[in-house]
Amino acid sequence: MDRGVAALNADLIGVAGSRAALETPALLLDATAFEKNVATLAGLAREAGMGLRPHAKTHKCAGIAKAQIDAGALGIACAKPGELLALFDAGVASLMLTAPVSSRRKIDRLVQAAAKGCALSVVADRAGLVADYGAAARAAGATISVLVDCDTGLGRTGVTTPEGAVALARMIAAEPGLIYAGVQAYAGHVQHVHRTDERRAVNRAANEGLSTILAGLAEAGLAPKIVTGGGTGSHALDFEDQVLTEVQAGSYVFMDEGYRPVELHGANGPVFDFSMFVMVTIIAHNAKGEAITDGGSKSFAIDGPPPRAFLNGREIGTIAWVGDEFGKLVLPPDVTPPAAGARIECTVPHCDPTANLHDAIHLVRGDRLEAIWPIEGRGLSD
């Protein structure tokens, strides 16, 4: 990285104590917590006999995607063509686009990647999209896998009936250049339901609708090989229910304040650790003596609970926003504000859009900077 804090921090890689010397605002990835999170979910998937296809919308980073694949992931899910193509260019070969598109130019770009070696799978929610993917595949001399997109309660995209799913599956199977691969049913409305019993009820209602669709496909001789969906909030329930064949969890690699209240494994405590932090620096004190930081809404996505602030590994308060570029450290009355120049590590309200605000993520292990990974899909929301 040749610009911004990544360029300023590059010469600190491998230096003892470099974590505390980073220029800020810097997006951090704690290697110990990150590796634990990746290994934990991969192990849970293996124990359940199910696949894992982590979602790159969370991180948009080839370094993270490769670590997930090395741990056993089947491939990587992507929300948008731009981030998928960026990851392919960065050397990630097995990629699934989990949302429909309506642009033939984007379809052509995706299929061209397949012709160059991308193991590409996509979803379709309507006949016209199947026809467009088929025409593009024939023109490029490529073959792509297509899944029927199903809506089981999210209310975003996808068919809702067995008849609709069967009609699309038949059309996919009949198109030269397309392979009918299965179905996608992402129950996004389940993921942040806090209590386990309530989340289980919502997830099972979604799975009842999905099971009806699966039964209709099986009766038509189109039983899907892949049934993909789920996420960080529902992963344990999905492993338990065994309706899906693979889970698309994303946020588990980082965690954020939005997921903190969610009982991911009942009331047994957190199963994943916070691994993403934004490091900021105290740059001044206002007239009230409050510490002002160099990180505001251009460094944190603020659509979630406020960040918790840590000084030398000890939680000392929270961050409030005082501008796009600046934050304010909110401390208990008995805590003295840190001096100017102090580095503060902060959790994030929402990890996915926070990653999208940064060009690079600083991999730290213990007290030192280990590597700087580019976020190849940063800003590619197309």
Rank of each mutant, 00 (worst) to 15 (best):
V123H: 01
E208Q: 13
I226H: 06
Y180F: 14
G209A: 11
L147H: 15
H192S: 09
G141L: 11
G209N: 14
I226C: 03
D149F: 03
L147Q: 14
V202H: 01
H192Q: 13
A220M: 10
D132R: 14
G231H: 00
I172W: 04
T161Y: 05
H189W: 06
T196I: 13
T232P: 08
A236R: 09
V247S: 05
S145N: 12
L217S: 06
A136L: 11
H235G: 00
A218G: 07
L244S: 00
M171D: 14
R138C: 10
F239Y: 14
A139Y: 09
L147R: 14
G231W: 06
A220G: 09
A187D: 15
P176T: 08
T196Q: 11
T232K: 02
A185Q: 07
E198N: 08
G233Q: 05
A220H: 02
V190D: 07
R170P: 11
E198S: 11
F239S: 01
G216T: 08
M255Y: 09
G128V: 05
V148C: 07
R200Q: 13
L217M: 06
V159L: 11
A140C: 10
H192F: 14
V183R: 02
H194T: 10
A173H: 11
G128Y: 01
N207T: 00
I179A: 04
I226S: 09
V227T: 09
R199K: 12
V123P: 01
C150A: 14
N203I: 00
T152Q: 07
R126W: 08
H194P: 02
R156F: 10
R195K: 11
Q184V: 09
Y133M: 05
Q242P: 01
A142R: 03
R204F: 08
T161A: 07
G164F: 10
A206W: 01
A135M: 08
A167Q: 15
G188C: 10
A127C: 08
A223T: 03
D149G: 09
A140P: 00
Q191Y: 06
A127M: 14
N207W: 04
R200E: 14
V148G: 01
G134A: 13
V148N: 06
S145Q: 15
C150V: 15
L237K: 02
A206L: 04
R195P: 00
E163K: 13
T196L: 14
A135Q: 12
V193M: 02
T212V: 14
G141K: 03
V146L: 12
V227D: 06
D151I: 10
G177S: 04
T152W: 02
V183P: 04
T228W: 01
R260Y: 09
D241Y: 05
L214E: 04
G153M: 07
R204H: 12
K225A: 15
E198Y: 05
P162R: 11
